[in-house]
Write a protein that binds this DNA or RNA. Sequence first.
RNA 1: GCCGGUGUAGCUCAGUCGGUUAGAGCGACGGUCUCAUAAGCCGUAGGUCGUAGGUUCAAGUCCUACCGCCGGCACCA
Length: 641
Amino acid sequence: MKYYLTVPIYYVNAAPHIGHFYTTMAADLIKRMKTMQGYDVVLTTGSDEHGQNVERAARKIGKTPEDYATVISEEFRQQWISSGLGVDRFMRTSDPRHHQTVRWLFDRCRQNGYIYKGTYTGQYCFNCELYVNEAGPGDPCPDCKRPTETITEDNYFFKLSAFQDKLLELYESQPGFIQPEIRRNEVLAFARKGLNDLSITRTSIKWGIPVPVEGSHVFYVWFDALITYMSAVEGEDRWPADLHLIGKEIVRFHAVYWPAFLMAAGLPLPKRVFAHGWLLFENDKMSKSRGNIVRATPIQKVMGADALRYFLLREVVFGQDGSFSYDALVGRYNSDLANGLGNLVSRTLTMIRQYRGGVIPPGPADAAVAAASEAAIAATLEAFENFEFSKGLDAVWSLISAADRFIVESAPWKLAKQTGDEEQAQLSRILYTAADVVRVVTALLTPVLPESSARIWEQLGIVSPPVLNGLAPGQLAPGQPIGTIQPIFPRADAATAIDAMRAGEAEELARQQALLGQAPPKADLPPPAPLEPPIAIDDFLKVDMRVGQVLSAEPVKGADKLLHLKIDIGEPQPRTIVAGIALAYKPEQVVGRKVAIVANLAPRKLRGIESQGMIIAASLEGGSPALVSFLEEAPVGARLK
RNA sequence: GCCGGUGUAGCUCAGUCGGUUAGAGCGACGGUCUCAUAAGCCGUAGGUCGUAGGUUCAAGUCCUACCGCCGGCACCA
């Protein structure tokens, strides 16, 4: 039985962070689970290396795109190795074998009549490498908001429009093709609206896969990157994939374009596309501009690789957005792993050592506990099969909790003080029951906690760990000696651990930035607005700017952006100024504050109030203002020049 | 603007086909055992189930409107 799953190949424009880790770790978990069920599993990922952004980033630090991409690609590969993630094939889009597969697929689509050559004139976003059909000259890109540029170029087009019906039929006939449901609804809505043909080549880019025959064209990113799923296993009889595991932001490419490409080429389609949600950092979207991206490595170093895996799978409902925070991580670790699992292992083994000389005593297991084990096994496996990892883990922990309760209720330490045969046999059964739960729990957790479960097997004295198929309570073999007892999850001091993670994070960030070139690529910052034409000093001096102090501020009725300000600039009467800063500043935040105003601006009525000047503020991303202020003492009325 | 999702304890979330007194974990507080990692176990507090209507013998659950948040599409800048 074969099982082929993929995670996206990652773009070398950024170094690996916890978001990349999340997807790949989930795939590793599925792989381990399938392997334990007897499948022959292959997991692929790789690096997406082409495109103008990479060209630019490389040039900025004086490297060729190849060299630059190689460094970052290697960084990703190392990340998976050091995190213990079982990536079997790693395909780089720059790999000649991949180029061959892309060109082969293109030829097949063309032979089947789904490729044609056309001319595109219109707006183009160089950052996203995206044609913006609807936009007019100068309009911003709908994705990244940078200005688009007008271009005219010859392209090859893919007849996506020809596949609307076939795709809809696919979604209908295979309801599980796109999961979860919410993503499926989106794709359905998108496809039902009608599909436009897709330009799949670019002449404006050099760094890419050359289109057959046409020297000056290279393939567009999505007619390149997706195909690594095939090129990675070329000649292995693996295609089609059983599962593409992706983030929700690339659903359309995987659920619409990709099956269409494959249909056009007459190739089998993947069985399933599963899109997980985003990882937020303390409830904010992680982004470079916020500077709140977190890396996996420092967390793993402090808390252990398994702790991070456990946290992400337990805390975040797979498929939905979820948030990561150091606090929550340490909390989960202490309450679930240390106090729960770790402590159960420890107390069970210690009693076996003390009361039974370190040898697993004979059973049978307590009937009620065995029933709880059986229920937990079924619930966990079913949940895992449906990728409901948090639910599955919940079921495991309810078994751990049942075992703790059983131990307290049967109080083996009291029986240990009694010498009667019946009491001693009873004690053996209790210890056996507890140890058997540890065995069941550890087997269920093996795909989730690979390192820790290996250590538990060792301490339990089990040489060949059980597989998931056929796992049942009461199968622990009595008579075997246990190993050396050591804490699996020592309790962590929150403050110390969090400090260590933050410090490690800062180091790791610096290391990654060095790899990417001294300054990290600024590609995601919009270019500053173009400068106004030069003016003479006299022109500037016509603008009379003064230091003012806000005396009062109140909202303007019927306008959510406006504040009605009274500002003292040293005149007998304070100025009335209506400023569009209400979204960024509450009235009480500006009262008393020194600001800079344009004092000789012609008055203007805003919402019925005459505004006698304007307040100076920097215009930030998204249009929100940042008021100018003074570090030194600036007397009211002083002129700015 | 259209479509979809969502709103339940301090936090994260369950809650089936409408059916007794709305649950769990974490956190807080109190008690208790001693095998265990200051762990475990028992208990307590904490809820106008977003708001307002409606259907019903009965509504967290179904319907309508509105509000908040998230997402998709369209639009605006």
